[in-house]
Computed example of a mutant assay.
Amino acid sequence: MMSMLTGKTVLVTGGGRGVGRAIALAAAEAGANVAVNDLGVSLQGDSTGDSPAHEVVKEIEAMGGKAIALTDSVGNWDAAHSMIETTVKTFGSIDAVINNAGNLRDVIFHKMTEDDFDAVINVHLKGTFNMSRAAAPFFKEQAGGAFLHMTSTSGLIGNFGQANYCAAKLGIVGMSKAIALDMQRFGVRSNAVAPFAWTRMVSSIPNETPEQKKRVEGLMKLVPERLAPFAVAMVSDQAKHVTGQVFGVRNNEIYLFSQSRPIRTAHSGEGWTPETVIDRVLPMFENDFYPLHKSGDVFTWDPV
């Protein structure tokens, strides 16, 4: 991995802590110039007035790498364009954008406010759009580039109290696929990955009941650094043939997720009525209905 990104410039959003920090350091170790974006906010997205991006830059420089800190919000269109432009002016190019910035406003749906919803959508979904859209013209001009977007099993499968987060993370999957389709002719690729890692975001999970304690114990085994090699590989030239895919990384396990396709079909030559839908279609399909699983109901085994 030491020279896989030599001569490349990689921008990592949310790069000051957790998964983002691990990716930023790994990209630098692999030879990339790294733009580390981190606004410096609380878990809920409120400003703390201090960005950890500068500390990550110091770590990269201490290992002999080159890096800059970008402390603007990905949720702001103008700021996103400014950060991409600053990166290009500093290093001469932009070759990969890793959209990792995020926040949480976990609230049960019937109590979720508009602000709870908008705040999460703005950082995850809108932020991913802003940064990707700002980089797209540069990727098009140079006939190449890589996007890697963070999704989540909360969106792919489901979770309690996260309607805002689930919507954003599943929306990112759709956006990633659309980018892959639109930009393929320019040699640009776009993929999504669901990281499993014990970070500041998942550390907010309740830890009170025996079931919750068991879940948290399992999550604490998931270290952010395990995702970094995958991220470096995916934005390297060696993976330039891979686009439009959805992956997962859980410690030493790497997954390729399925994408929505029809699994059952019902046909009626004379068309349907509400009554025949009830009488014929639903009984035909019931054995294949998906249960209301949460992410933890699907990934039940211990991480390895």
Results as ranks from 00 to 15, higher is better:
89 K>R: 12
89 K>Q: 10
91 F>H: 04
88 V>Y: 00
89 K>F: 00
77 W>S: 14
75 G>R: 06
81 H>R: 14
73 S>A: 15
75 G>I: 12
72 D>F: 12
85 E>Y: 06
89 K>C: 01
73 S>Y: 10
86 T>S: 11
77 W>F: 14
78 D>G: 13
74 V>C: 13
103 N>H: 04
75 G>Y: 07
88 V>E: 03
92 G>S: 03
72 D>C: 13
98 I>R: 00
104 L>Y: 10
70 L>D: 07
100 N>S: 12
101 A>T: 10
101 A>Y: 06
78 D>W: 09
82 S>H: 12
74 V>H: 11
91 F>S: 04
77 W>M: 14
98 I>M: 02
90 T>Q: 04
87 T>W: 01
87 T>N: 02
98 I>H: 01
102 G>K: 10
78 D>Y: 12
91 F>M: 03
95 D>G: 04
84 I>S: 04
80 A>I: 07
82 S>C: 09
96 A>I: 08
84 I>E: 01
70 L>K: 05
91 F>E: 02
70 L>I: 06
81 H>M: 07
97 V>K: 03
79 A>H: 10
89 K>S: 07
72 D>Q: 15
91 F>P: 07
82 S>K: 15
100 N>E: 06
79 A>C: 12
95 D>R: 03
89 K>N: 07
85 E>W: 07
99 N>I: 04
82 S>G: 11
76 N>D: 14
77 W>L: 15
91 F>N: 05
103 N>S: 12
73 S>I: 09
104 L>D: 05
84 I>A: 04
90 T>E: 02
77 W>K: 15
92 G>F: 02
87 T>V: 06
79 A>P: 07
73 S>F: 12
101 A>V: 11
98 I>Y: 00
72 D>Y: 12
76 N>Q: 13
75 G>F: 08
78 D>I: 11
102 G>D: 05
86 T>K: 12
101 A>G: 06
88 V>R: 01
